[in-house]
Amino acid sequence: MTATLTVDMELTHDTTNMVIPAGQGLAFRIRAGDRFRLVDPEGGQVGDLFAFAASDPTEYLSAAHTRTSVSRLFPRVGEPFLTNRRRPILTLTADTSPGAHDMLIAACDPARYEAFGVTGHASCADNLRIALSRLAITTPVVPQPVNVFMNIPVGADGDLSWLPAPSRPGDAVTLEADMDCVIVVSACPMDLNPINGDRPTSLAIEFVAPRT
């Protein structure tokens, strides 16, 4: 059985798989109760995940409000991600990866790459805006993303380390929508530090049939 979901240009697709090319982004709509997997086909790739309330894009998944609610740097399986209005928007229902994920690091943007001396580089912030524009949606802010598979351990002294994503080929997280929402995933294009290993690669979205 496949899940029927509304994606991209308001077209309804009966599909269970969409590929996000390396360095690019994808937006899709999902209804409350539906589930999707974010899959790392080759391993070692970070995915910047954003979620917006379908009825009002000024309500969005907030890392800060989520950390406050779960009293952790990242939810455990079975715990929700909250919006900036303190409402559950997604719940983490499964995780086959080693469990390294991040909600501290901002999305890469043109200014980040310019600091490295590079102009015109693809970024997760631009991928967010481009993907949303395909659904005729704009956002005045780039929220703090959920950086799936990103490995940024916090040392005892508070220092952050930038390590390669430890996800293995085929590792995935499964998320359930707690409200109708718009999801954006960026296959992070960062290639100037080690978070994506040797090179950025693609990610995939697999839709999961709703619970019966």
Rank of each mutant, 00 (worst) to 15 (best):
A22E: 13
F52R: 12
P80M: 02
A27T: 15
R72N: 14
I89D: 11
G44V: 04
F74M: 15
G78W: 04
P80R: 03
A94Y: 00
A53G: 03
G33M: 10
D40M: 05
D34Y: 09
D48F: 09
G43N: 07
T58E: 12
T66A: 02
P57G: 11
F36L: 14
T58C: 08
S69A: 15
P80C: 08
G78C: 03
P80H: 04
A27P: 13
R72P: 07
A27W: 12
L26P: 12
A27F: 06
A22W: 10
S55W: 15
V46N: 07
G47H: 00
F50H: 14
R76I: 02
G25H: 03
A32K: 15
R29W: 10
S69D: 08
R35N: 05
D48T: 09
N84W: 05
G23V: 02
R87A: 09
T83P: 10
A51R: 09
P57L: 12
E59N: 10
E42K: 13
P41F: 06
S69G: 09
A22D: 13
E42V: 06
A51L: 11
P75A: 12
L92E: 03
P41T: 06
R86D: 14
E79P: 02
P75V: 10
T66K: 02
R87P: 00
L73R: 14
L82E: 02
Q45C: 00
G23C: 07
G78H: 04
L92M: 07
T66V: 02
R72V: 07
Y60C: 10
Q45L: 01
L92R: 03
R67I: 08
A27N: 15
F52Q: 15
P57K: 06
